[in-house]
Design a binder for these strands. Structure first.
Lengths: 343, 343
DNA sequence: CCGCTTACCGTGAACGTTCCCAGAATCAGT
DNA sequence: ACTGATTCTGGGAACGTTCACGGTAAGCGG
């Protein structure tokens, strides 16, 4: 290293005070101290006061491991990020979700632990960590299907709530998801209500819940439609552009397109404008997510919003109920059409 | 809620298998199983195999609380974000730091827990959590001074390593910081070596280590300079713009400016160009951080880079040594001049 | 064949809590 | 004064590990 300064040495305290030390200092028994610690029921004012004073004096802090060992509760839950997380952190919606969960859990005096697991090795260690009793439950944001952590945690009986439908485990894992299908339906019906007749769609990857459900909603609103009106994307801007180009060449007379994500929609808009189409006059464009980009497109994007505060609240509620021994459930939170200028 | 589907009920396993169950299943004693669990020294091949088989059969996972209770180790450390964290998550450098720490800790089979504490209430709960023995140590990214968690953790004897000089606790807390002063010095000396003679600076807030140290490096390189060459910013783009305007009016003949962050430098460049100055011909501009924006300015920004992978590695090394009982140290990692077109 | 070393194994104690139960003390009602 | 209820307290047991210690058996040199 370049330079090392060694400040004055710090000695670690010899031994942490235990509940017995407090009891001795307060002149009461272990049991009484424990009662004070846990709500103070059945303890006289005098004892209560003596114990509190003794705790201050000794600088006592409860040993969570000892407590957890007997209560079988750790008062903490994990928030698992098992994707290569770089993209997620940049997503402001993700921040809202995370923050919402932290707050909701805080109300129950539960700490949220964010754990990362990108590599396989990480995931293994994390599996051990989680099933070792360190946490009471886990919140999982699983964008892709086939996350190997899900079956592992499930088989250990660890309460797990997924954000977004956990493909392949819909029946076993609890989850909360936005009503993708209904959102898509709303959007397409809105497009129709404004007189559009050739409504195309760019879907997400069909191995993601959003890909599947949003397409289903599109179909639901339209009945069976011309297959030439459907193109598949991959949630990236470039993917949206490519899909839009395919649609334009397949179906030049389309007058609206419902795109399964805002980012792809931004790509689609670029391509449309390059092709000389005016938005929304010639082609109406609808997105999904109501993310940042929806406001930066030209014109601003009509899109579908999902309420992240709501989602986080429901996730926590569900997790706590699982921890309490209830059986898993799926919660679908409503989505809402946000009309701007693009449609 | 909008819709609830209840999949088939999942029953929680009656009881987790303990080390005794494994011992019974393997026909050996508790002690032997424990030995297998901890490296397998002094255990015969036959016993080893029997135990491993029994563990698979019973689905045994060690109870971390029980283990931690006796070993006084939790094999996990906290990564504490106590600022309103929204800004941090968006910083790609932060991701590098986080990832680096995770990896470095993984080598020692230690799990990293990311904990958020924005509100005061959060911070309290977090304090309890951390000092309750849940973690063996903490990594702290403290951009501002006066973080109340530092003294608390310190007084509890919890090993803490800060990223960036923890103002007010430099002597007591271990930390690793980039060599801000030297980086600034390098930059200013480089500017002088290209013939610049009226070198101004825009500083960061003077209650942050970066603000103080980078200014010190500037002074070090220049000897005492004209106070009219110094303006203070707040690390935001707007702050950089304002400071640049002040400098231009105070000192219209400046021919270079060292800006204490890339973002402020981007603001400064805008103002300079609006004032009709060519960069670098009329005014050379140097930044600090080598962040994303350094590449997007016009022209690309000459700046100072700090090695985040290096910083994370040193932080972990330092923390582990603290946990092993060593006394705290400060590590300063070198900074490096990155020359691009703006100077 | 004896004793010493080595490899392996079992057991009791400890870690610091909570929980439960039994008992003491107080009090009110008869 | 006796009973019964109520409030408070103390202490044993348990949670699931690790660790130090002691013991047994086998191997080996003399």
């Amino acid at each position: 290293m370049h330079n090392v300064v060694v400040p004055e040495p710090r000695r670690r305290p010899a031994r942490r005070p235990t509940i017995n030390d407090v009891a001795a200092a307060a002149g009461v028994s272990r049991g009484t101290v424990s009662r004070v610690l846990n709500g103070g029921r059945d303890v006289s004012d005098a004892a209560q006061e003596a114990v509190e004073k003794a705790m201050r004096k000794t600088g006592y802090v409860v040993n969570q491991h000892a407590r957890s060992l007997v209560t079988q509760r750790s008062q903490s839950v994990a928030f698992i990020l098992s994707e290569p997380q770089d993209r997620l952190f940049e997503d402001p919606n993700f921040n809202v979700l995370l923050h919402g969960c932290t707050q909701a859990l805080a109300k129950h005096d539960i700490t949220l632990l964010l754990t990362l697991a990108s590599s396989l090795e990480d995931r293994k260690r994390l599996g051990r960590y989680l099933t070792g009793g360190h946490v009471d439950g886990a919140l999982l944001v699983s964008t892709h299907s086939g996350n190997p952590l899900i079956p592992e945690l499930l088989s250990r009986g660890l309460p797990v709530v997924a954000c977004g439908k956990p493909l392949g485990y819909e029946r076993q894992a609890a989850y909360v998801a936005a009503d993708d299908r209904d959102g898509a339906r709303q959007m397409v019906e809105y497009l129709r209500s404004t007189g559009r007749r050739r409504i195309a769609t760019i879907t997400g990857p069909l191995d993601t819940p959003g890909g599947i459900e949003r397409l289903a909603g599109y179909r639901e609103a339209l009945g069976d439609s011309d297959p030439a009106l459907i193109a598949h994307g991959d949630y990236t801007r470039a993917g949206g552009e490519a899909a839009m180009r395919r649609l334009l060449s397949q179906t030049p007379d389309l007058d609206a397109v419902f795109v399964a994500s805002d980012l792809m929609a931004a790509g689609a808009i670029t391509v449309l404008q390059l092709a000389g189409k005016r938005i929304p006059e010639d082609v109406a464009v609808g997105g999904f997510d109501d993310s940042q980009v929806a406001l930066t497109t030209q014109p601003p994007l009509t899109t579908v919003r999902q309420s992240y505060p709501r989602i986080s609240a429901e996730m926590v509620r569900l997790l706590l109920s699982l921890i309490d021994g209830e059986s898993p459930a799926a919660v679908i939170v409503p989505t809402e059409l946000v009309v701007r200028e693009s449609a």
